[in-house]
Amino acid sequence: MQDGLPYILPIIFTLSIVIMLLIYWFGGKTAAKGSLKTTHGKKATYACGEDFPVEEVRVDLERFFVFAVYFLIFDVLAFILATSFYTTGLIPIAYSLIVLAAVAALLLARGARK
């Protein structure tokens, strides 16, 4: 299958999305339609029976941001390690030790802030 390589990746991704769309469409055709009269409770989001205003639901992005930055840095480090298999030996080892020191520094800094 090596010769058809440029086409096979988009074909397979499109095919699986099409299969799922077919299932979705089939589900829409066969599903029970429900009664025409809908109450307020049926179309409300689940809230254990309490009335809860929608506007108060929000993601705390500020706390999230710090984690995301750490993650980005370490993901780049991991990918540089991932592509290191052409130069084996001392350089990747030194690089891994630097990453390890960075993880230790991160954990110590978090401990000190507490």
């Binding site: 699986s16 999305i17 799922m20 769309l21 299932i23 066969t30 599903a31 179309k43 409300a44 989001t45």
Partner: peptide, 30 residues
């Protein structure tokens, strides 16, 4: 589950609510 009624709450973001199940099942299959 396919033959059950598909209830869409009023508050949801309709586009995300429809697209995410399709993507969630298509990505691992591909």
């Amino acid at each position: 589950l396919l033959s059950k009624e598909d209830i869409v709450p009023l508050a949801v973001d309709k586009l995300l609510f429809t697209l995410t199940p399709i993507l969630y099942s298509a990505l691992p299959l591909a």
